[in-house]
């Protein structure tokens, strides 16, 4: 784990992605402090105005401050997704560890439930849940949690299984350590990088999905600022004010790119075989062959 962290520290892209993500999260949490204006304040006369000192990114179709909406939109578009992801991971990790560590009947039951959940494509089930229970961010996030935990549970189960046979775990067990202690001190840290990779990649797809559904009008209620909905509002005036499409679109992109780059870098750092090392070895071989 320390090893992974020190490798990531050396990767400039990973560090800058992490910095961007942290910065955006902080700005989102303290949106009240960072936003220059009230995101809901309507100035009908400033409709579609370009950037100015008072409104650094201009005004939207109702004359609201775009920058402030973008900043407050972090909460709905990123923070809520993060919270949902945290819930998903918690459920997935707990069930995965239980299944992988205790095995037997519990494992069987949890895995069969996972199979059932995984047999439904998550996009479809999200739509189904939104369709049955009504539109809204709450239902979308609920659907995400319901559909995604199984992925995590399954991956963590096999990760746990890999480690329960490791000598140091066996040793702790034999020396009479409590199960909770073993799970906390040995298993969880061992599978942590895997959690990080999955979470990071999933968050970026989740952000895209939530904003996509909001774009279709299935997400948040107006006038709550949300990036997908801001885009969908902007697209109606796209022909006359194409600029309106940019801020929220770029925001979504930056967020998604940062999370996937980060996930990638953690994977690279963890998995020596995949890219870096294997490539070097290969290049060396090729050179040798050429010579």
């Amino acid at each position: 784990m320390m090893n992974v962290w020190s490798k990531i520290k050396k990767d400039r892209i990973a560090v800058s992605c992490l910095a961007i993500i942290l910065m955006i999260i902080i700005v989102g949490i303290f949106a009240n402090f960072f936003a220059p204006n009230d995101p809901l304040e309507i100035n009908a006369t400033l409709k579609f105005d370009g950037p100015s000192w008072e409104y650094p990114l201009g005004n939207d179709q109702l004359g609201r401050c775009m920058l402030s909406r973008l900043i407050f939109g972090i909460r709905t578009s990123v923070l809520f997704v993060l919270v949902a992801m945290f819930a998903t991971i918690s459920i997935g990790t707990i069930l995965g560890i239980i299944a992988g560590y205790f095995k037997g009947k519990v494992d069987e039951v949890i895995m069969r439930v996972c199979d059932i959940v995984l047999s439904f494509p998550s996009e479809v089930m999200t739509l189904a849940i939104v369709g049955m229970f009504g539109t809204g961010l709450k239902n979308i996030l609920l659907a995400c949690i319901l559909m995604k935990w199984a992925w995590f549970a399954r991956v963590f189960r096999s990760a746990v299984m890999k480690y329960t046979d490791k000598n140091y775990v066996m040793f702790s067990k034999a020396s009479g350590c409590k199960t909770g202690h073993i799970l906390r001190k040995h298993i969880l840290p061992a599978i942590f990088p895997e959690i990080a990779v999955m979470a990071s990649n999933n968050i970026s797809s989740q952000i895209l999905m939530v904003s996509g559904l909001s774009f279709l009008g299935l997400g948040v209620q107006a006038p709550t600022p949300e990036w997908g909905m801001m885009l969908s509002e902007a697209k109606d005036a796209m022909l006359i004010h194409p600029y309106q499409m940019l801020p929220s679109g770029i925001a979504i992109m930056v967020m998604a790119v940062s999370f996937s780059f980060l996930g990638d870098s953690i994977r690279d750092a963890m998995d020596v075989k995949h890219e870096g090392y294997a490539l070097k070895k290969n290049r060396f071989k090729r050179k040798r062959l050429a010579a």
Partner: peptide, 16 residues
Amino acid sequence: RTDVAGVKGICEYLQS
């Protein structure tokens, strides 16, 4: 109604 275009903007305006 979300299926009627434009009313969302009007409601947002009424809110302010």
